[in-house]
Design a protein around this nucleic acid. Structure first.
Length: 414
RNA sequence: GGACAGAUGGGUGAGUGGUUGAAACCGCACGCCUGGAACGCGUGUGUAGGGCAACCUACCGAGGGUUCGAAUCCCUCUCUGUCCGCCA
């Protein structure tokens, strides 16, 4: 979450910065009011508590000196009522404050370009050149069905739409990709971990999926548990409520997991093929750094992902997201988009974000900097969305007969 | 799933109603000692919020209760450990 003290002190600055994310001044003004109200009530409560403590201590001496305590008792029980009333009010005020605070997105970094949606994103680099086809390239779903790699009907039979059965060489290729990606990420300095793929509400609050985006999560019936929408949640929350040692930073982790998303509101988008599924494998990168090192880490992560695509021989580009397209928790995001021949355009295959201290504040991830405890910065990025990588390989490396050439780097994984 | 035990600061661990936010030890930081280090000695060292200085408030798994006052008593829940059962 954002720093409410910063909002209180530098209101205009925060308003200006959050304008990029189209957060209204009214909302922020309301937030500030709630904060001030909470603060005010809280100090009233604390004053009453201090009074209570002072009086309570008198009992000992009164009793020792055999003084009458009936009056004192009366005073104290009066004050007790006041405390009860005030703490109710404080609780209420705090709840109102937190409700709002938890739903305000992160401040974008100063360098984030202005803009409304993805059309305003800024291309920063193009790597590789899209191949010139001597024939009409087929979409992956046609290739996949013909090859027996993608069985859409049977996937739907097992679950519902947007679930797919991947078979034969398709399944083997998926597994090879995961292994290749993990090995690559390890060379970039990211330690492999294996974590639960279900997680609790607290963790989802920590990384910002809750409270605002609950409708996109699969919840397990009868449990306070959800299927993870991304390993970012578990990887980052691994250190929730901890104070890390300065020497332990940066922490760099990678993990391959299935991800589950309801894709609420994506109705009609990418209905054919496996670009947008309810379940997909993703290899994730997460880094936890000191504040002054986080942007260096962002660059490093972008390079790690870009080189992965280059090694696979896939043309791609780096795009800097504009304010309007920036995610809830992100301060700055670089998307990596891969060339999809059948659509004749680049599509997102990775999204790498620095959330600065936004998630750290929510999840209470700190480190000891000399004598002080400071919030860390957290970063996350896909490396890569496996299903979409499979799509890219199929489409980019297809021949006229509908066969797929396997990238050389994957050979030893098959 | 059944039975029992437990949950205290970075760690081990004391503490059964009142100057205990918490002994002791370890760790850590700083200083002294040393040519340098180890050892030794000394000082400091929980988190969060408010004043942003003195200081005040809350927190001893979570929530509620008893009491003028609770880490300490009562209730509920969660988690952990051990044994039994079941099982990949």
């Amino acid at each position: 979450m954002i720093d409410v003290k910063l909002l209180n002190r530098n209101f205009d600055e925060v308003v200006a910065r959050l304008q990029k994310k189209r957060v209204s001044e009214e909302l922020l003004s309301q937030l500030r009011d709630r904060y001030l109200k909470f603060k005010n009530l809280k100090s009233q409560l604390e004053e009453a508590q201090a009074e209570q403590n002072r009086k309570s201590k008198l009992f000992q001496t009164y009793i020792r000196e055999k003084k009458d305590i009936t009056n004192l008792k009366k005073e104290v029980s009066e004050n007790k009522k006041l405390i009860a009333q005030l703490s109710e009010k404080v609780k209420e005020a705090e709840k109102l404050l937190e409700e709002l605070l938890y739903s305000i997105p992160n401040l974008p970094h100063q360098s984030v370009p202005d803009g409304v949606d993805e059309n305003d994103n800024v291309e920063i680099a193009k790597i590789g050149t899209p191949r010139q086809f001597q024939f009409e390239p087929k979409p992956h779903y046609e290739l996949g069905e013909k090859l027996g790699w993608l069985d859409f009907e049977r996937g739907v039979k097992l679950a519902k739409s947007r679930f797919t059965a991947i078979r034969g060489m398709g399944a083997r290729l998926e597994r090879a990709l995961i292994n290749y990606m993990l090995d690559h990420n390890r060379k970039c300095g990211f330690d492999e971990v294996s974590l639960p793929i279900v997680t609790n509400a607290k963790s989802l609050y920590g990384t910002g999926q809750l409270p605002k985006f609950g409708e996109d999560l699969f919840k397990i019936e009868g449990e306070e548990l959800y299927l993870i929408p991304t390993a970012e949640v578990t990887l980052t929350n691994l250190f929730a409520d901890e104070i890390l040692k300065s020497d332990d930073l940066p922490i760099q982790l990678t993990s391959a997991t299935p991800c589950f998303r309801k894709e609420a509101g994506a109705g009609g988008k990418d209905v054919r093929g496996i670009i947008r599924q309810h379940q997909f494998y993703k290899v994730e990168l997460v880094a936890i750094t000191k504040p002054e090192e986080s942007y260096q880490m962002l660059d490093k992560m972008v390079e790690c992902v870009s080189s992965l695509l280059s090694n696979l021989g896939l043309p791609h580009r780096k795009v800097e997201l504009c304010g309007g397209d920036l995610g809830f928790s992100a301060s700055k995001t670089v998307d990596i988009e891969v060339w999809i021949p059948s659509q004749n355009r680049y599509r997102e295959i990775s999204s790498i974000s620095n959330t600065e201290d936004f998630q750290a504040r929510r999840a209470k991830i700190r480190y000891r900097d000399g004598k002080k405890n400071r919030l860390v910065h957290t970063l996350n990025g896909s490396s890569l969305a496996v299903g979409r990588t499979l799509v890219a390989i199929m489409e980019n490396f297809q021949n006229e007969n509908g066969e797929i050439e396997i990238p050389k780097v994957l050979e030893r994984y098959l």
